[in-house]
Amino acid sequence: MSDNKYIDRRNFIERSFRIGLGAAVAGTAGYTLLKLTRRSYVWQIDPFKCTQCGRCQTDCVLPVSAVKCVHAYDLCGYCDLCGGYFKPDANELSTAAENQLCPTQAIKRQFVEEPYYEYIIVEELCIGCGKCVKGCTSFGNGSLILQIRHDICVNCNECAIARVCPSDAISRIPVDEPYIIKGDFSFTNKS
């Protein structure tokens, strides 16, 4: 076989493969484009599904979880005896640390007017353990919820908590509505 022929044949094979591969990439891209939503996604917890298992605290890839407790004030009863603030066996309704459910004392209790108290989450302290959320959901209105905080979350390609969440509560949601905050059921009656 002469040199030229050899090189011609090689070039021809290479070109065919190149076209084939190009078509494969274009095909994949095209197919995905058909389904493409212009919006980007972020991970978020559906508070209606979350069972406060505690994995949000331990399984986030960040040293301190990007999941924090959020207060959906719309729902709060401003109770004196707050199921999210006090341990069930608390011996008095004071702000003493041993009475508090929160391991890091991240909830601030503030008097509003008789007999109402306001509860504020200090996010810097919250570690996302969900203990208060569990307390509030079991004994109160469920106004404390866990949410992924997008100023902290690095938006992993696959959220490490979503993978282990036993309630399948974490999913991708569109970036323009990045939180699922419970509303006031007595007004809107929807999630």
Binding site: D74, V112, E113, Y116, N141, N155, N189
Partner: peptide
């Protein structure tokens, strides 16, 4: 759970309910 056990109080001191905080993503 889709029910409010304790009704929302009617405040007399003009207390304003704060909004739930929602920091923006990138």
């Amino acid at each position: 759970q889709h029910q409010q056990r304790f009704p929302r109080p009617e405040f007399e001191t003009g207390y304003e309910q704060p909004d739930a905080t929602t920091p923006e993503p990138r």
